[in-house]
Amino acid sequence: MIKLTNLTKIYGKLTAVNHINLDVGSGEIFGFLGPNGAGKTTTIRMIAGLLQPTEGTAVIGEYDIQREAIQAKAITGFIPDRPYIYDKLTATEFMHFTASLYDLTDAKNRIIGLLELFGLVDWMDELVENYSHGMKQRLVMASALLHEPRVLVVDEPMVGLDPRGARLVKDIFKDLASKGVTVFMSTHTLEIVEQMCSRVAIINQGNIIAQGSVQDLGRMARMQDSHLEPIFLRLTGGDEVLDS
């Protein structure tokens, strides 16, 4: 469902993402991990069509995000790491605006349903500027699901969410995956990856250094039966820092 081929992004002298190749299937929850500045957000922004790759392609479903951007974006839902939304709109207005962008007609019931699902109904007529970070994050998620995307691209989904919100999001992602939606998610919360992701890729300094199931990564790091945290630190060189 998501196919990255030699995807590369170079900023001046810095290679942020270096010829990465990934293939994520339908209904898969795919974890995308890496230390700060490794190239996660750059990759995600290229997949969502917000950033043009220097080289390589990203194909969503059957559409190349650069050449068939409109079709690719029509089947993708994007949730950024920072939920910037128009402050002067209410949640309902923002949802209706999003519905128009995706050419959805008669989305009223679905909007109410999603606002209910994300616990925002009591606040739906309040201006977004009065929302907390977590509420904005939930609103962005609700809007990303409005057009029933086949692919969900998520950058740091749990930042700012309370435990109940985090649990809700986990349940929703699992439910979506069971219905065949592909979830591509970058996160620093390794327990979530362990609980939810069927496969994981680790990016470090722009390169994919490992990919596979959590068990596969454990074998690569020679740390079978270990939790993901020590495996991640071993593979990214973070354990040396801790030991020293």
Partner: peptide, 14 residues
């Protein structure tokens, strides 16, 4: 559009 421009850019609106 400010920092909310991602909404337009990630949508199918050209």
């Amino acid at each position: 559009e400010g920092e909310s421009f991602w909404i337009i850019r990630s949508s199918p609106l050209s």
